[in-house]
Design a protein around this nucleic acid. Structure first.
Lengths: 362, 362
DNA sequence: CGTTAGCACTCCCGGCATTGGAGTGCTAAC
DNA sequence: GTTAGCACTCCAATGCCGGGAGTGCTAACG
């Protein structure tokens, strides 16, 4: 099915490898020299022209060297590249920078993003997931002073989100605690997406207090719960992209930064495409989107490598690297894999804490 | 003392105004044409050459137009520019985008930063202050599940910071509450800078519980308090700078982004220079740093306009705009002023809530 | 004496042709 | 099937030229 014989493959690999390194179109003579190929440049030339006909290579213009096409990169990442595991010292270095004693999901993801960008040299993104299907475990409202309270929402996955809200001045701590308990009792175990304002109100009514007091508070509780479901996106190292020759034109650079800055654009894209991972039956834990496969304005000439952090069942966040299509996929894949595993470990630790509580209860 | 006669001033103003708009060196002929000056271009020429001798203008090269020098901009912002108050509709637009129902300082500043960048078209920064001298008002530790608690720290200025921490599994909610109360009682009213681990431990001992349990918790309490004192920096709209011709060279653009990305660099600079505002006896509520006055690598050719948000006595945050030296100072000053006033109002609301509590207590 | 018109001079910038280098594709020979 | 040789192509760098915009100087003017 795959029309590439071994020699074509090795030539394609050599071209991609070289182009990743130099960002300059690769000529046949250079290629033979740099890789000590056993054939002459003329042979390579005819092979390259064949590879171009098949769609794996492109020529910026006649009589220039060849450059990989998106299809070429695709073949490269799917079949040709060699992903070496990280060197132990590299692992140590990353683990050192990765703050793995996080207690909050967002911290973990932010930290992962920052480290990924630093160690790969590309731009990174991290995203907390939509948690619609996650169960509410606890909701606590704690008075901090008359008129102000903090609402803490805990989800089944061990995720904690909190928020300061305004409450009626006359409300005292005990009453608030009572309301809080009533709401928690009524809603605990429900999926976030099923929690409506009506449900919250119904739960709150059990506290048997005058509606006047209740309404505002219950509304705030509702908003806090809904907010726990909101996505957060962090990006890091956008400045690094400007160092690459593909962004030598400011216009290109601005397009890229604008795309990143336009809130939710990248996030939306990632969220949308992430679940389709299994589509090709690809067993790899990461997803790669190359060049035109990303149909986002301003991100042409870029590739994504993304992966999702999970506690085993639910997706707890996505992290990814954005680089030029000419990025070092092997390096990025190994780095992102290691970071993901490290974060997953930490998450498991977090979840286990939650689990053990469940057991205590029963 | 000021060696500039009226005509020189008006010519300087005209040059700066035009240069701000066009980013091109200004020639004498153009200047008379655009401003309908009553004198001839020859006269303007001699005046300009005089202004250059005095240091207000510069020539990129012989036989090119003139460009304002840093000193020229300085004269412009201090004496020449006309700052018009915002149009009511503009005010409405800003107020609409500015989320002024914030309950947390950080939210307010982030929101301010985002709006500032949007409406001015430049890059913005916002920074929470170091709160060393602020008093600790409350510290509450709330169990969210066995092994995990949330620590909420409230400062006198009404600022709330919280953090999830790990605690010993065997600890129950009541015991934690007892410790929390003991710590709060012992530390409440102290300035953050005076709170040491020893002080926290001493306060916690009052709970009369075994040290084994206490130590870890008290340490976390200490860290949480110290963390409340940490600065947070938000920047927004860095991508906007790439639209300006002064950043047409990627190198320049990268330098700028690198400087912004290098955590704490800009923040440190702002924090350091902000208090010196009163230095010149300048009664204005904003501070302007022009070009070389900012001695930061990568930010050459840029200017800062910054201001501080306050509740009347303590500084509660800084917001600022970074643009090319050729920025529209008048516009930025009026915008930043309005945003600051709006935020200040909101802060006063927050603080008042705190005040009324104090009164209730006494 | 300040102001202005005229003029020579300077310098940048864009367009144009030239040239060298790197690469291709073709062909003929191995 | 592979390779050496060769003509051809195209880009990128270089140097050159001319127009345009601006300056500074000078001499004349009110």
């Amino acid at each position: 099915m795959n029309p590439l014989d071994d020699r074509k493959k090795s030539i394609l690999k050599a071209v991609v490898d070289d182009y990743i390194e130099t960002a300059e179109p690769i000529g046949s003579v250079q290629l033979v020299a740099r890789h000590g190929l056993a054939v002459s440049s003329a042979t390579v030339r005819s092979e390259m022209s064949e590879l171009e006909r098949l769609g794996y290579l492109e020529q910026p213009h006649t009589s220039a060297g060849r450059v990989p096409s998106d299809q070429g990169y695709r073949e490269y990442v799917d079949e040709l590249m060699r992903v070496d595991p990280l060197a132990p010292e590299e692992e140590r270095r990353i683990r050192g920078r990765l703050d793995d004693h996080f207690e909050e999901l967002a911290d973990a993801l932010r930290s992962a993003s920052s480290v990924l960008s630093q160690t790969t040299g590309y731009t990174s993104v991290a995203m907390t997931p939509r948690l619609r299907t996650s169960q509410l475990k606890q909701i606590k409202m704690l008075m901090i002073e008359p008129g102000r309270a903090i609402v803490v929402v805990v989800l089944a996955a061990g995720i904690v989100k909190d928020r300061v809200v305004r409450i009626p001045e006359m409300l005292d701590a005990e009453t608030l605690a009572k309301i809080s308990a009533a709401v928690e009792e009524g809603l605990s175990g429900m999926k976030l997406e099923d929690i409506t304002l009506v449900a919250v109100t119904a739960a709150g009514r059990r506290a048997h207090l005058p509606d006047g007091l209740l309404n505002q508070i219950l509304y705030e509780a509702y908003v806090s719960i809904k907010q726990a479901d909101s996505m957060n996106v962090y990006t890091d190292g956008a400045n690094r992209m400007l160092g690459f020759p593909e962004f030598a034109a400011v216009g290109k650079a601005k397009g890229f930064l604008d795309a990143l800055a336009s809130d939710g654009l990248v996030a939306g894209y990632l969220a949308e495409t992430a679940p389709s991972e299994g589509g090709t039956g690809n067993p790899r834990p990461y997803m790669i989107r190359i060049g035109q496969e990303i149909a986002l304005e301003g991100l042409d000439g870029c590739s994504f490598v993304t992966t999702t952090c999970t506690d085993g069942c639910t997706t707890l966040g996505s992290i990814g690297v954005i680089g030029p299509t000419r990025m070092d996929y092997a390096k990025v894949v190994s780095h992102i894999g290691f970071v993901r595993r490290t974060i997953d470990e930490g998450l498991r630790r977090l979840i286990d804490a939650g689990r053990s509580e469940e057991e205590n209860r029963t």
